[in-house]
């Protein structure tokens, strides 16, 4: 005869209480997580917007004590560094992704590359900076925009490789076979058919990597170094927005703190815009239609 288990009222109460408590804790932790984010954004908007003016975008930094001045050189410098980084990181990253998805699928080598890319993603950016310092800056004997671009570029590679691979894997086999069936060479089919079908996702990956390195400061400390003056030469030290924010933030001058907030707002807007763009592109991606 099966024994009948009758839970006591206390037992039931305890279970319900535990359930309510857990729900409350989960909701509370969500609030606690969202709070600093809102606080950071609100404060940034408040401090940044009040310090932002036309001079910020058109002038170079003024010496200590003089009011005004801007970060025009840092904005341009960041642009140059990021363009160089993209020129290095995007082709290599996409190439690696194509290898993983199209040629190496299921092989041991591909698994190992994938794993190494994930691990490389976690290597601290400052360590990258030291390595590039030893590799590029020491032989050249001076800091340069080129070294900064290389440091940021190799940081983009693992992210782009992994997202490109993931996106290419989503392309149906029938598409590849249709292309090959029409007599298209394999390399052409990969570039013009597979990669093109997956392009919204691949672009997403590139933008995410871009957004990540756009805010990097640590690898630029010993490579691009920063510059108070106009410089667009790849062989010279160059200013960058995150570097300038850092230098101004740890300075003891109120005027510079103000500029640091303005710079942070501009940097965040740049990054948020690209992330939002990415979400817009991916949620209405071409891939959805092909499935």
């Amino acid at each position: 005869m099966p024994s009948r288990y009758q839970p006591s009222a206390l037992h039931r109460f305890r279970r319900i209480a535990a359930n309510q408590l857990a729900s409350a804790l989960a909701i509370a932790s969500t609030v606690i997580v969202v709070a600093p984010l809102v606080a950071i954004f609100a404060y940034l908007l408040f401090k940044g917007a009040s310090s932002l003016n036309l001079a910020f975008f058109t002038q170079t930094p003024k010496p200590v004590g003089e009011p005004g001045g801007g970060m025009a050189n840092a904005i341009v410098g960041s642009g140059i560094l990021l363009a160089l980084a993209s020129a290095i990181g995007v082709p290599i990253g996409i190439g690696g992704g194509i290898y993983l998805a199209e040629f190496g699928r299921g092989t041991r080598l591909a698994n190992f590359i994938r794993f190494t890319a994930d691990v490389l993603n976690g290597v601290p950016s400052i360590v990258m900076g030291i390595a590039i310092y030893a590799l590029v800056v020491l032989p050249q004997k001076h800091f340069s925009a080129f070294a900064g671009g290389v440091a940021l570029g190799i940081m983009m590679v693992p992210t782009i490789t992994r997202t490109t691979e993931e996106m290419l894997l989503m392309v149906p086999h029938s598409v590849r076979e249709a292309a090959l069936g029409l007599g298209v060479p394999n390399w052409r089919s990969v570039l013009s058919i597979t990669l093109k079908t997956a392009s919204p996702g691949v672009i997403t990956g590139c933008m995410l990597a871009f957004a990540r390195v756009a805010g990097e400061t640590a690898p630029l400390l010993f490579t691009a170094l920063g510059n108070e003056f106009w410089s667009t030469s790849l062989g010279e030290p160059i200013a960058a927005l995150p570097l300038q924010i850092y230098v101004y933030a740890i300075s003891p001058y109120n005027e510079w703190h103000r500029l640091a907030w303005a710079g942070a707002l501009v940097l965040i807007l740049l990054i948020v815009l690209s992330v939002a763009l990415v979400r817009y592109v991916t949620t209405r991606g071409v891939l959805k239609g092909t499935a």
Binding site: G95, Y99, F103, L120
Partner: peptide, 24 residues
């Protein structure tokens, strides 16, 4: 050639790790 080029890109990940370790 294309296949080798892509393989090279994939192997660059190892090269990056190797260069960092070597320089350090």
């Amino acid at each position: 050639a294309f296949r080798w080029l892509m393989l090279l890109s994939g192997l660059s990940i190892f090269a990056i790790i190797g260069i960092i370790a070597g320089e350090l």
